[in-house]
Amino acid sequence: MAAETGTPTTLTLKSNDDELFSVAESAAILSVTIRNMVEDGCAGGVIPLDNVDGKTLASVITYMNGISAIPADEEKKKSYRDKFLSDKDFETLADMVLAANYLNMSCLMDAVSAKIAQVMEKKSVGWVRRKFGIENDYTPEEEAAVKEEHKWTFEGVETDDDN
């Protein structure tokens, strides 16, 4: 685990587009994937992260450093997460979900997921399709059956063409 005293151990992470990043081990082990590598003694050289690009990895490392600098104070951690995510566009958020999933970082995963969930709240089916670019692959009969199952959900939703 992280060194208690002396010079902090530094790890080198490599993105899938060959960018190299240095990060303190104590921050990097927020990722269970990386922690397992450290514990297995496989973190000595460069750690290749094949599923994360440089732009996303830079963001994730900013988050790792920021959140691990905050002592055990859930309120402060939460406000850091809110601020960290406040200026991220949807594309970046989706990339961060993929990265958090690959790196097995549940706190980042949940924060980003909650942020995306906010966008989905109280929206119509058509709105979600358009916003997230999801193709409707239901037949009209199937779609009617799914809506019929939870009719109450769709009561009071006026139209599908609002934003």
């Binding site: 089916v125 979600v128 799914v146």
Partner: peptide
């Protein structure tokens, strides 16, 4: 995981979006 941060009502809406 994303849908689990919405509400039961939103999850039922999401189910009608696509098969996936």
């Amino acid at each position: 995981n994303i849908i689990s941060f919405t509400s039961p009502k939103d999850a039922c809406t999401a189910a009608a979006v696509s098969v996936g």
